[in-house]
């Protein structure tokens, strides 16, 4: 019996090493940077029309559905990485996988360049920076190993380098869903688990408050109708 136990133990011990897979196959090395620099936004525009990106992401990259992400004005490097991650199944989404599985790297770079060139959705002009949110956004919390959001995503939430997306002007539901997905490890394409670590330290209320702060304000359709009446 004992040899079996040691064999099983050995197998269990080695499992994590065997499964050692990077959270993303994208590296921002010279080849990727050159690819992004040589991308053609007009070719991306044509491809976006052909692939019907507007169906979910809106005609100008700003979505009507709060579950979907606003991609207009995000950095080309971030958008390219997400497209590759969908294709490599590093980010799990059946619809996006179907849309990108046959795309070449150049085509994904073109798409990223096109959506990066569009104007982002405006941030909510009435947003309120409460003390609790200010602490999270600009200072973080050392005791919980929580970094300031602004350190990677910019002081105005405009996004940072490479794989740090813009947050300002994003759909509120999408922001909450993303943080919860990182928290529950349903989304794992953040290299070295940076967002997984952070989201696990956040409480539900803090996630809601941050989403309120960064979210765009899209007028409710009912509200519009009321105004028209």
């Amino acid at each position: 019996m004992k040899p079996y136990i040691s064999v099983i133990t050995a197998l269990l011990l080695f499992t994590p090493v065997v499964n050692a897979e990077p959270s993303s196959a994208v590296a921002f090395d010279l080849a990727t940077i050159k690819l992004l620099k040589s991308a053609d936004p007009q070719a991306g525009k044509a491809l976006a029309e052909e692939s019907k990106c507007a169906k979910c992401h809106g005609d100008a990259g700003v979505s009507d559905d709060p579950d979907d992400i606003n991609i207009a004005g995000m950095s080309a490097s971030y958008l390219f990485k997400q497209l590759r991650d969908y294709k490599d199944k590093k980010r799990d989404d059946r619809d996006m996988y179907k849309n990108v599985r046959e795309l070449e790297d150049e085509q994904m770079a073109d798409l990223a360049a096109w959506f990066a060139s569009l104007s982002p959705a405006p941030a909510n002009p009435d947003r309120v920076l409460t003390d609790a949110v200010r602490k999270l956004v600009f200072y973080g919390d050392p005791e919980r190993l929580l970094k300031a959001c602004a350190s990677c995503h910019g002081r105005r939430g405009q996004g940072g380098q490479f794989d740090h997306p813009a947050l300002a002007g994003q759909n509120r539901t999408y922001l909450v869903d993303s943080l919860v997905a990182f928290q529950e490890e349903d989304r794992e394409n953040d290299i070295y688990g940076r967002m997984r670590d952070i989201s696990k330290s956040l409480t539900e209320d803090e996630i809601e408050a941050l989403a309120d702060y960064y979210a765009t304000y899209l007028p409710d359709e009912d509200e519009d109708e009321e105004e028209e009446e």
Binding site: V17, A20, E21, P22, S23, S24, A27, Y192
Partner: peptide, 10 residues
């Protein structure tokens, strides 16, 4: 993150 030694799981 694509090297063996510094892969996330290692």
């Amino acid at each position: 993150h694509l090297t063996e030694e510094f892969a996330e799981d290692n």
